[in-house]
Design a protein around this nucleic acid. Structure first.
Length: 279
DNA sequence: CCTGCTACCTGATGGC
DNA sequence: TGCCATCAGGTAGCAG
């Protein structure tokens, strides 16, 4: 489950399900999901703790406990699943029939929250304090937060010679954009992804800031309708295609000019853009 | 400090 | 059909 809007939608759905609940038991069904932390670390920290709230920073989901916190990162394919009770978890988790892949499960007073990632890139970690997680502690300004302001963004751009696409993907500067929405934002701002960040004129920087904010807002709306449903194993975000202007459209016509969408590689990832109108 | 590259995994898809 | 190559919405860790 990829970028910031998807994670935000998940957290908004998750929060009312778990707030105030005590974690009765933690099951690590696929130990790779907690590596490299010691196997017992998660259960030791989380068992019998109460979840004060579920929230989000960048693409991380946080379960803030009455002591310590749990972080979940979905990487490319991770997701949440929900079971009514421990019995349903036992019967269905990683079962042949009617089975659901589950890596880690938190048995709550009411319901069971599961973390699932067949690809095993995703991770679930336990921390005493927020700052102990280097990934979390190094995150930059959250792209959906009020602190993400045009003036500040312009200063950050001015301090980097990296290509715009790489700059936007860097979570230590602006947290939340990934491969899809960084490319979409650059298309909306009519900027060439290969341009050096510091080469932007003030007006271009403002345009990019505005594009990021509006792309994320539209994507979040889309992710909330319909809202995530952790009970439905088929559930996934619907209708994202209709808001995407360039992603995955190599060889197809640009939606703004007579150009054709190209695919290039940047930092080992695919970038889609229109050479004709993105300058 | 900054940057670029690779590894980490599994599954879907398309060409032959 | 089978086999192989390529691709996938992310980040940590490492070398230079």
């Amino acid at each position: 489950m990829p970028e910031l809007p998807e994670v935000e939608a998940v957290v908004r759905t998750l929060h009312p399900l778990v707030q105030g609940q005590r974690i009765r038991c933690v099951h690590v069904l696929h130990p790779i999901a907690v590596k490299p932390q010691p196997l017992s670390r998660l259960a030791d920290l989380a068992r019998n703790r109460r979840i004060q709230r579920a929230d989000r920073k960048g693409k991380y989901v946080l379960l803030r406990l009455d002591r310590g916190l749990v972080t979940l990162h979905f990487k490319l394919d991770g997701r949440l699943v929900w079971f009514s009770n421990a019995r349903e978890l036992r019967e269905r988790a990683n079962a042949q029939e009617n089975g659901v892949h589950v890596d880690v499960a938190f048995e709550l007073e009411k319901g069971v929250l599961g973390f699932s990632d067949r690809r095993h890139f995703g991770r679930v970690y336990a921390w005493d304090r927020f700052e102990d997680s280097s990934g979390l502690a190094s995150l930059g300004i959250d792209a959906l937060s009020r602190d993400f302001k045009a003036a500040r963004f312009r200063e950050m751009l001015a301090g980097s010679k990296r290509p715009l696409k790489d700059f936007l993907m860097d979570q230590t500067r602006v947290a939340g954009l990934g491969n899809i929405y960084s490319g979409e934002s650059l298309w909306h701002a009519r900027l060439d992804p290969r341009r050096r960040a510091k080469s932007l004129e003030p007006e271009e920087a403002r345009r990019l800031h505005k594009a990021i904010v509006s792309v994320l807002a539209r994507a979040l709306e889309c992710c909330l309708h319909p809202a995530p449903d952790f009970r439905d194993s088929q559930w996934w975000f619907q209708g994202l295609e209709k808001i995407l202007r360039v992603y995955g459209r190599e060889g197809e016509p640009c939606r703004r000019c007579d150009g054709t969408i190209q695919r290039i590689e940047q930092g080992g990832r695919s970038t889609y853009f229109c050479r004709r109108c993105q300058k």
